[in-house]
Simulated scan of single mutants.
Amino acid sequence: MSYQKFRGWVRALTVAATAATMVGVAPVSAHAETTLLPGWDLPATVSTQADGSILAEVDPAALAAKSTTFTTLATTGCGSTCDGKDPNNYKYAGATCAADATTVRAVYEPGGTYAGVELRYSPRCRTAWARWSNNAQLLSSISLYNYTSSGTERLHYILDGLDRASQAWGPMVNDAGYLSKACYFYYDGGSTANPYYTICTTKY
C-alpha cells in the first residue's frame, strides 16, 4: 500500500486543553495471543477498550529485536530537529526516518474494519508520528500528542479533513525521552445521539 502526505494544512499546537478530552480508555478485555494485523510488520497484542474501540500494541520482544540494529544511533536520535519534519523525506544517519519505522500502537473503530490511526516509530531517529490507517471514515482527522515524562503536553499536530479517498501521515515529533500517542476523530452517521467520536492509542 502506498501512502501520500495529506494535501491540506497541518496545524501545530501546544495547547494542552484541546487534548484533555482525547484520552485512551482502559482495556476491558484482551486476546491472550499476539497476532499480525493488516499493515503491521510486527505482531501485536489486541484488546477491546471500554468505548468499544480496538487497541493494538506491538509485542515488546519483537520490537526490541528489530531495534537492536539501531542501538548506537538510538542513544541520541535526531532530537527536536525532527519536530515537524516529514518522516518520508527527512534523513538522519543516511536514511529517512520512515525507512526503519514500525507501527507500535494503533486504535481502530469498533467492528473490525481496521479504520483508525497508527502510531509509527523510528528506532533510527527516535521519532514518532501518526498515520491514517485504511478505510478511515468521511470527515475524519488524525492527531499526534507528545508528552514529557511528567505528563505535560509538549506538542501536538492535527490533520483535518481526511476521507475515504485519502491516505495520510502527519509530521514527526522527537520521542527520545518523551511519550507519544495518536488519536482518531471520526463521524458515525449510524449513531443519532452522538455521531462524533475520538479514540486514542495508549502512549509509547
Rank of each mutant, 00 (worst) to 15 (best):
N89T: 11
D41A: 14
N194T: 09
S53H: 02
G190P: 01
R105Y: 05
L42V: 07
N134W: 14
A115M: 04
D41V: 09
D59V: 14
W40L: 03
Y92T: 04
Y114C: 03
D163H: 11
P60L: 05
M172Y: 06
A32D: 02
G77V: 01
N134F: 11
L63P: 02
A115H: 09
Q167K: 04
P60I: 14
W129T: 00
P171Y: 14
I54N: 06
Y145K: 00
K91T: 11
T72E: 14
R7E: 15
G94K: 10
V107T: 10
Y90M: 11
P110V: 01
A56I: 06
P123E: 09
G84S: 10
V117M: 01
R154Q: 07
R105I: 02
R11W: 12
T198G: 01
E118Q: 14
N194Y: 10
T69K: 15
G24L: 04
R105M: 07
D41C: 12
P38S: 07
S180Q: 02
P43T: 13
L138D: 04
S122N: 00
Y204P: 00
A136Y: 06
D41H: 12
P38Y: 05
T18L: 10
V25S: 02
T152N: 14
T48V: 06
V10Y: 15
N134C: 09
T127M: 06
V25L: 12
A32H: 08
D160H: 12
T103G: 03
V117H: 07
L73T: 11
Y187H: 09
N88D: 05
D175H: 06
Y3Q: 10
Y197N: 09
G52F: 05
A16C: 04
A115N: 03
G79L: 12
L55R: 14
K91Y: 01
T113W: 11
E57T: 15
S122D: 06
V15F: 10
A16R: 13
A64Q: 13
L139Y: 09
R105V: 00
A128Y: 00
N146E: 07
A64D: 15
D59Q: 12
Q4W: 10
C78R: 13
E57Q: 15
F70M: 14
W9G: 09
V15P: 00
S53M: 02
S191N: 13
Y157Q: 06
R124S: 13
Y92S: 03
T21P: 07
T148P: 02
N194F: 10
S2R: 12
T14W: 13
I54W: 04
N146S: 12
L155Q: 15
